[in-house]
Design a protein around this nucleic acid. Sequence first.
DNA 1: CATGAATGAGCCTTCATTCAT
DNA 2: TATGAATGAAGGCTCATTCAT
Lengths: 205, 205, 205, 205
Amino acid sequence: MSRMTREQSRDLTQQKLREAALKEFAFAGFAGASIDRISEAAGFSRGAFYANYKGKHELMLELMCEMSALEVERWRELILAHAADSDDFAASVAERFEAFMQETPWALFAVEAQLQARRDPLFAARHREYMGYVNQSIKELLSMSFQQAGKQLPEDLELLGHTFYSLALGLFLSTDPVCPTTGAKAAGAAMARLYSGLLAPTRGV
Amino acid sequence: MSRMTREQSRDLTQQKLREAALKEFAFAGFAGASIDRISEAAGFSRGAFYANYKGKHELMLELMCEMSALEVERWRELILAHAADSDDFAASVAERFEAFMQETPWALFAVEAQLQARRDPLFAARHREYMGYVNQSIKELLSMSFQQAGKQLPEDLELLGHTFYSLALGLFLSTDPVCPTTGAKAAGAAMARLYSGLLAPTRGV
Amino acid sequence: MSRMTREQSRDLTQQKLREAALKEFAFAGFAGASIDRISEAAGFSRGAFYANYKGKHELMLELMCEMSALEVERWRELILAHAADSDDFAASVAERFEAFMQETPWALFAVEAQLQARRDPLFAARHREYMGYVNQSIKELLSMSFQQAGKQLPEDLELLGHTFYSLALGLFLSTDPVCPTTGAKAAGAAMARLYSGLLAPTRGV
Amino acid sequence: MSRMTREQSRDLTQQKLREAALKEFAFAGFAGASIDRISEAAGFSRGAFYANYKGKHELMLELMCEMSALEVERWRELILAHAADSDDFAASVAERFEAFMQETPWALFAVEAQLQARRDPLFAARHREYMGYVNQSIKELLSMSFQQAGKQLPEDLELLGHTFYSLALGLFLSTDPVCPTTGAKAAGAAMARLYSGLLAPTRGV
DNA sequence: CATGAATGAGCCTTCATTCAT
DNA sequence: TATGAATGAAGGCTCATTCAT
């Protein structure tokens, strides 16, 4: 007798498939991803995949949803962690970003999602929706950060958040993955620098 | 008898193929790109492609080479244009970047090149080499910029340049292509802001 | 506790499955029929199907058996209905045939059965057996018809019956289903005409 | 150096593919037909098939077109052969039909085409068009036949033709293919009988 | 140099079937 | 008996690549 109920078993299968799919999508891109490889990496047969997901597209959507939820959660954690004390955000941001840089599959997936949104209108619609949540979280983070620093909220807070997110994505993309440690460190520093550079100055731009 | 020498004719063919390939790689990614579509878009047959390039991989390399050369050239132009007068760089940078945002195929190709470098070691080697040139150009630009602003060169000039390039890539990627005008405008502003934020402050970070 | 005995419940399940299967086989053919669709249309799961039938082939056989039994029954009814009075057979035949034309699933299934008999020797054996019963019924009908008409039985009565059945099948197949009313009417007329044409003439062919 | 021009070679390939496809469609039906088997039977690879035909559907259409053209041609030949002398049509018809019965693949394909027309609306449209030509041919044949027999054209000539075609199809379908000789013979006789039975009587129905 | 017919590996997907629950 | 997760073979189709012309 198995230890799991049917539902548990099913959920486990899906989780394994999603984990394998994340890596596949990240490293091969949507077009290059092979459902065969995903299934095998997850330890299942092709058929098991299709018993759980309608197809490549649906899985990509599912992963994207998972990704943005996770992303939002991370930023929120960062916010909450600093809600109480007024520690230096810059260091936290750098640290948080270094971690992001090391989570290669998720970061790559974020890039692939952006690309896929340019190719598949259906995907684009959902993607925009989810990115909205992410942007909202970043905005809240920055907003709190400004308040704690005793600064007035800049009018272009949204743009600032977008800039933040963009730099993170860009740094991840263009940082050489061969020596990830130094790369991530440097990238973290760059993020911190942007954070300081943008928050610190009293004068507008 | 044709007006062109054999070599000229060959070069023309290759140019047409590369132009078509750029778009295909940009919009479909390396894995999704189809040599048939490239050839047809260039006005040739499959065979013509293989008479000029060894295969998909070689063409991608060739395009990457062309891309980075063009990129270097652009930055150098920006440098030279400002070598004489001491105009405000920020505006130039914003303008230059907005133009970059609109050159969707090249920008997308730059992203694809970064991704491909993570997949194909051979490609990665060449890519690193060419990115070296690009980074060097940006460094020179920043260096000159600092000098004209009467500031001391920061020690992390290389990192600054990298940050610059990364933000450009990231903004391009994460800016919604649906309303390209406002997106590009906003992204240009973000770039200008980074430029000002990083160069202007007297205090280090 | 259910009101039905186990056996009754089982029979009901099988009946529902067979009903769904008839339509599926009729409209998709044997190869195109999907056990999933059959089960779902019957309101059961895949497993229920396999708990009741060994597989696609067995179900097809079962249906064929059901079909020929029903076919025999119909012809016999026709015979019995006219055993008492000596009404015009032609009209009855036409009417009976028009009804057959409208029972699309059964008619289509008859065609599929013929085709399947060419593919599956096992099926062919049973099919031949059942077609024997059908032909026998038709022969009896014709025989009675000749007697009532006061004609001598022709030597090729069997061939006549076969011709009858064949025309029915052929008319069904080649009559455009788009306007079923006129099609069926016309086909009924054609059947009646054959009936009259074959029975009426005193001279042989 | 090959003996054939490119076009000739291509045509030959297509012909071989169509020949193989005819048999496959005939014996396995549209749904059951496998492009792999077709290609292999024709002596080519899968790819060769797709280089010549867009897919299963297109090939089926192509074959249907070929079939009806051939059908029309046959009926016309029958007509022309008897245009000069006033031989007995019945025998010719029987003979012609016996030949049809032996051309199993074509006859089976005709059945499959009818079935496919019920499943695929696109196919149905073309099928109706082509069947129009066939019916026209049969009508001309009958018309001529009536004239030579010195009879008046019946009002329902079209229906008569349809009946003719239907009986042919039906006889083919329901005649046991195991002993094709006797079956075909008998079927030929049945056709001849219908022909005589329908043409001969002076009285209407 | 350019063509396009042919190849064959590999892709996404469906489906009959099995089996633990 | 009925369920549905999982299998694995097979199908339709695409595509990078080769090669005779």
